[in-house]
Simulated assay, not measured.
Amino acid sequence: MFPTEILKEPFLICKDHTVSGEQFELRKAEKLDLFVTFPRPEEDKLSSYYKSEKYISHTDSKSTFFDRIYQLVKSSMLKKKLVWIEKEVPKKGNILDLGAGTGDFLLAAKKRGWEVFGVEPDNGARKLAAEKGVDLLKESEALPNEFFDVISMWHVLEHVPDLDKQISELQRLLKPDGLLLIAVPNFKSYDAKVYKENWAAYDVPRHLYHFSPQSMRELFEKKNFSLTSQKGLFFDSFYVSLLSEKYRSAATNVVKALMIGFISNLRAMKDENYSSLAYFFRKSQKGNF
């Protein structure tokens, strides 16, 4: 379900560089600072766009240069993410990670004393997580109401077919005044403006929605969530720029990509438009689901 009507004229036409080679449009939402991937694959066909060894978040692969960079960045950010959470929620309780991938974030949280729960639709990723001792559910519907102190979604919301339904489900699951942490790419960033249709974080058609800070705030305020802070994911600009450079020129221009990533972070220190942003929301004490 789209959160609002979308304009007919495309903002950009982007290529699926990962699986199909097909082209998709980014169309502007009429009432939100948000882009929507168009046409959207049917839900029963959408999973086929994830079936590639190039789709690294469902694997633990380190076989290519980009795989190794991804895994290095992921490992370096695990502790930082948990430190952020523990500053907001000092008493460790129940944490739910939606779109948990191969379970590394929950494994790190478990080692720090959290009671961990996770949801991951992909069978292969769930199997890899189970081998690490992290058991994941396929869906969240069976989980109890208002049970979780913290819910996280790390680069997952952009994949969700029905935003309204998903945000309502987050409200159902989270305790009153609980912490919701959502990280998504930010098309307002400098690297997005440089690479345009080749910006790797558009990742059509797997990314169905493309957010700005304004649209994130407005979407969640409608569901009784209050934005308390946001943090930049510093390493994302470098990783995304490396991939984007490859998409744009079919070459791994490491120096140029790192320079663009550096400039993007430098500018974001002033305007907060990092390549990816982690948003911290609190659920209203009076919120209904």
Rank of each mutant, 00 (worst) to 15 (best):
N253E: 08
E245A: 05
I260L: 10
N265A: 06
D271H: 11
K231S: 11
S241F: 02
K270G: 08
R267M: 14
S241A: 08
F235H: 13
L242S: 01
L242N: 02
E272A: 12
L243I: 09
I260S: 09
T228C: 11
G261E: 02
F262R: 14
E245I: 01
L266I: 11
M259P: 14
F235G: 05
S229G: 08
K246P: 12
D271R: 11
L243A: 07
S275E: 05
N253Y: 04
L243T: 03
K270V: 12
A250L: 13
A268Q: 02
N265W: 00
T228N: 12
A268V: 09
K246C: 12
Q230S: 15
S264P: 01
M259D: 10
V254P: 01
V255A: 06
L242K: 01
I260Q: 05
N265Y: 04
N273T: 10
K246M: 12
K270C: 07
S241R: 05
R248Y: 06
M269G: 11
K270Y: 07
I263G: 07
S264W: 03
L266S: 14
Y274N: 07
D236A: 04
V255N: 02
S229A: 12
L242G: 00
L233S: 10
V254T: 06
L243M: 10
E245M: 13
E245D: 10
M269N: 13
S275W: 04
N253V: 06
F238T: 00
L243F: 05
L266W: 12
E245Y: 06
V255L: 07
Q230F: 08
K270D: 15
T228D: 15
K256N: 10
L242Q: 06
M259S: 13
M259R: 14
S244L: 00
A250H: 15
D271C: 08
S244P: 03
D271Y: 09
S237Y: 02
Y274D: 12
F234N: 10
L242R: 01
K246H: 10
Y239C: 02
F234K: 13
L243D: 03
A268R: 04
S275R: 03
Q230K: 11
K246T: 07
L242W: 00
Y247F: 13
K231H: 13
V255W: 00
S244G: 00
R267D: 05
L233D: 08
N273D: 11
Y239G: 01
F234A: 10
A250W: 15
S244Q: 00
Y247H: 08
M269H: 13
V240Q: 05
S229H: 13
M269R: 14
F234I: 15
A251H: 14
F238V: 03
V254M: 03
L258V: 00
A268Y: 03
G261W: 00
A251P: 08
A268I: 08
R267V: 14
